[in-house]
Amino acid sequence: MKIKLIDIAHGRSGDKGDAANVGLIAYDDKGYEIISKYLTAERVKEHFKGICFGDVERYELPNIRALNFMLHNTLGGGGTVSLKHDAQGKTLAAALLRMELEVE
């Protein structure tokens, strides 16, 4: 079965130097089961190919049904060094919600 991430989760993203943090929050427990099972760091790195050029770190916050991803080497240098239109990665949480997951 195919699930659109936008139907089961929301989130917020921002900058930490040249890394972007993307926090993803499931709307309910079932949604958290799915994202915590299928949304690996590798899957997220693959999704952000051409945007994220470094490692992806993944952290779990089951208390609020959330995952936090640190996308390194993503913001074109970060701060005022970055020439990117979205230099703070503000739209990257929405970009993650474009993902579709194949779940059992």
Partner: peptide
């Protein structure tokens, strides 16, 4: 919840001059 995950790194180690917070403990 959206604000809690905003600009955090390792949620178990949120470092400030006053303490280190474990964001995975927070209940809402």
């Amino acid at each position: 919840a959206e604000q809690l995950v905003y600009e955090i790194g390792d949620p178990a180690e949120y470092i400030t001059p006053d303490c280190v917070v474990d964001f995975t403990s927070i209940k809402l």
